[in-house]
């Protein structure tokens, strides 16, 4: 019973992934190009960096990076809080 159910789920998921793969667009041709073209042509003037990815990460989408830094800080402080020793010999 469990094996046949697992097989059914496997076949269904494989068919779903195959359908998703067939309906993909060709490589390098996204459906909406206007924002990409704006970033590629204007990023060097507006954000003054050669690397367009860096100018998007730190200038256009700066709040995303701020949230990511907060997530990393929370993860590190959580790990250090759970795994610390109660003596005064571990500094992390």
């Amino acid at each position: 019973m469990r094996t046949s159910l697992g097989l059914l789920a496997f076949i269904g998921f494989t068919l779903f992934l195959l359908a998703a793969m067939i309906s993909l667009r060709p490589f390098g041709e996204p459906p909406h190009r206007e924002m990409d073209d704006w970033f590629i042509t204007h990023a060097q003037i507006e954000a003054s960096a050669n690397n367009v990815v860096t100018s998007i990460v730190f200038d256009y989408r700066g709040f995303d990076t701020l949230g990511e830094a907060t997530v990393l800080f929370t993860a590190v402080s959580g790990v250090l809080m759970v795994l610390r020793r109660h003596k005064k010999e571990v500094k992390g």
Partner: peptide, 9 residues
């Protein structure tokens, strides 16, 4: 610091 605390415990 994560790797270090894994090593130190």
């Amino acid at each position: 610091s994560i790797v270090l605390i894994f090593f130190l415990i």
